[in-house]
């Protein structure tokens, strides 16, 4: 049986843990609002850009000499997975889920005899993946978005990707990230960004804007050359924002349940503490009474 002092110490330590988790929860909640707004605000732009490129890609499909960012390198031997995670832990399954998805994809791709490379954004994902796939990680970015995600940061990652692509280091690039759905739910989403996935309908034929042929100003290549790298950066930016909002949501939920668990634990411990104290008092009383009776 734990002594009264032990119990008291235990209660105090759980109480201070609860203070920390509830503070973290509140910080995450206030960051969540901002992150969520940013993520939602970026969606229209990213979606429109996807759609615009989709139309463009559909209308130029099969044309010779379309840029590799659009048409691919003609093979898919080397896959690059970009895994977006947080820099810090204590946010439930937030870091684990994309990493698990990445592992699954690595296994699947390896089974097909493809080569896989990894690029980690966020410290936690790198730490987790380094254990099993150390030699696959080509690069990692840390400390992004310490003060909110900026487009410049996304661009930095995008430039690294584009240089690697131009150097022919990979053929297909997919980002794996947590898509923000609500503060409680994040959906792990893999999204291919290089080469640009042409939207297809049920029969697998590319979907265009009713087969409309576009006029281009200044020129088709000029626009594509401008638009494609920007799309890569924009998709990354959008994914980073989604991931950031998800992280805050996940942390808030995790810390909320931690706070609640700490509360339950304190209640339980307090009960034991009071019982033990009462038992000690009763024991003392019995001792006194039986001593008096013996006289």
């Amino acid at each position: 049986m734990a002594s009264l002092k032990d119990l008291r110490n235990r209660i105090n330590s759980v109480k201070s843990t609860r203070k920390i988790t509830s503070a973290m929860k509140m910080v995450a909640a206030s960051k969540l609002r901002r992150a969520q707004e940013a993520a939602e605000a970026s969606r229209p732009y990213a979606e429109r850009m996807q759609r615009m490129l989709g139309n463009l890609a559909a209308s130029t499909q099969g044309a010779a000499g379309s840029p590799p960012l659009l048409a691919g390198t003609g093979k898919d031997d080397v896959h690059l997975l970009v895994v977006l995670t947080a820099n810090r832990g204590l946010c439930g399954g937030f870091n684990g889920n994309p990493v698990r998805e990445a592992r699954r994809q690595i296994q699947a791709l390896k089974a097909q005899g493809k080569e896989v490379k990894l690029l980690c954004v966020g410290r936690k994902g790198r730490d987790l993946l380094r254990r099993d796939y150390k030699n696959l990680i080509v690069d990692s970015f840390e400390g992004l978005g310490r003060r909110g995600i900026t487009y410049a940061e996304a661009n930095q990652v995008a430039e690294r990707l584009l240089t690697m692509f131009e150097a022919g280091e990979f053929d297909v690039c997919t980002i794996i990230f947590n898509k923000f759905q609500s503060a409680m739910t994040q959906v792990v989403t893999p999204r291919q960004i290089i080469p640009f996935p042409v939207p297809q309908d049920a029969e697998g034929t590319p979907q265009g804007a009713g087969g409309a042929l576009y006029d281009y100003e200044p020129s088709e290549e000029g626009i594509l050359k401008d638009l494609l790298p920007r799309n890569v950066a924009m998709q990354l930016f959008a994914a980073l924002l989604e991931s950031d909002a998800s992280e805050q949501g996940a942390r808030m939920t995790a810390m909320d349940s931690a706070t609640r668990n700490a509360g339950d634990m304190i209640d339980g411990l307090t009960l034991t503490y009071n019982r033990t104290r009462q038992a000690a008092i009763t024991k003392e009383l019995i001792e006194i009474i039986s001593g008096a009776e013996a006289l």
């Binding site: 804007a209 200044p218 626009i223």
Partner: peptide
């Protein structure tokens, strides 16, 4: 303001992509 000069867009404009 297109990169090759301003252009006006009216309903049923021909498909166009411009910087």
């Amino acid at each position: 303001p297109g990169s090759e000069g301003n252009f006006g867009v009216l309903p049923r404009h021909a498909p166009l992509l411009s910087t």
